[in-house]
Design a protein around this nucleic acid. Structure first.
Lengths: 201, 201
DNA sequence: GTAGTCATGTAAGAGGTTACATGATTAG
DNA sequence: CTAATCATGTAACCTCTTACATGACTAC
């Protein structure tokens, strides 16, 4: 982000929430110390600027070492992190739930990704029309011949999440249909048993 | 997993790698201490069994408190963790890479999920045919009327990952096509610039 | 005897979450 | 004056990764 524009940690947090956060989130409690570490490592340079009469702020820019590090990161092969999805795990053991809780879970899943889908769609439109402020500044800083690639890669990354959202919505629907089918067939779930007290005959 | 069969931490690690690990991975260094903690919390019971003359092993079973906890977990709403995908992040900033590195990245992505796809397909077949040992034992322990649901939920969870793998393969292909298009159009990437030394005219 | 499997741990450190904490500046 | 925004931290805690560490049992 600092290759697009020099800015404070505060700005970084803000812009994060509006763009990069859709693929990589970080709270300010991670960003501020990290900026200090990167500055100490020579990857960033900080300009301390007065803010009013008493306060100060640090405007960070990327250094040439930082640029080299960025290029290095961009060309290093990535590994695949271990799978860890609470939602899939839950789905695999839905027999321990109740029909009500299972349905709520899947409805919430569908709603969550329906909202996400709308966000992604708008985001991709905004990217392709260069309505995203930080992207605009990035294009101004770069050779015009690269503009197409810069925009295309952002849209490319976000389209994956768009497709993912569609997938999750369909998956949730499939799950809801499965629950309907099982309940109609009179299949009991283990979670319901918990509702039956032990003092039953 | 302990509701399907009582077993040692070692067994748990083994079975993890063959089934649950596809949605939730954990190394033995996490599993052993966790079993101890859960036993201390009364969720599990351990039977210490001699193994040969000198060695011992601990066979864990789930307690009634553990079952209650499991049911509680199964019915508690899940939250959505912050997005954090190194691959999407990388994709969004591919202009900092080189065509070669970017292609390798996407080819590796395609290969990774092609392998995953095959694994999922076999896994789902094995689940539906009840060829998975732990699943078989789970069905033996449960009322026959629940068998359909137990199998269906496992297949349901895994189908999501199957669909995900297909999505990732398509996405990687799209990315490769994009790279071909950009390179053919003569668009330079920032990573290539690093190859041009500063002592150029 | 030896290689493979069974079996169980510990520990340092990285990365991330959540909560606590503070205070200046600016717009109305 | 007061609320919103700008701005920057710290710290406890949890989870997970990676590496270190050990040794018994069993089949060949």
């Amino acid at each position: 982000m600092l290759t697009a524009e020099s800015m404070t940690g505060y700005d970084l947090v803000k812009y994060f929430d509006g763009s990069v956060a859709f693929v990589w989130q970080a709270p300010h409690s991670q960003i501020y110390p990290e900026l200090r570490r990167m500055e100490a490592a020579g990857l960033l340079e900080a300009e301390v600027v007065a803010r009013g009469e008493r306060a100060e702020k640090r405007i960070y820019s990327i250094s040439s070492a930082g640029l080299a590090e960025l290029r290095s990161w961009a060309t290093t092969p990535l590994t695949y992190p271990p799978e860890r999805s609470a939602h899939r795990l839950r789905a695999a053991f839905l027999e321990w739930s109740t029909y009500e809780a299972a349905r709520n879970q899947l409805l919430e899943h569908r709603n969550h990704f329906t909202r996400a889908l709308r966000t992604w769609e708008h985001m991709i439109e905004d990217i392709e029309a260069v309505r995203v402020p930080l992207l605009r500044r990035r294009l101004e800083r770069n050779a015009e011949e690269q503009a197409e690639a810069i925009v295309a890669f952002k849209a490319f990354a976000f389209r994956a999440e768009l497709a993912r959202a569609k997938l999750e919505i369909e998956w949730a629907k499939e799950g809801l249909a499965l629950l309907d089918h099982l309940e109609a067939a009179g299949v009991p779930l283990a979670g319901e048993a918990a509702a039956v007290p032990t003092d039953a005959p």
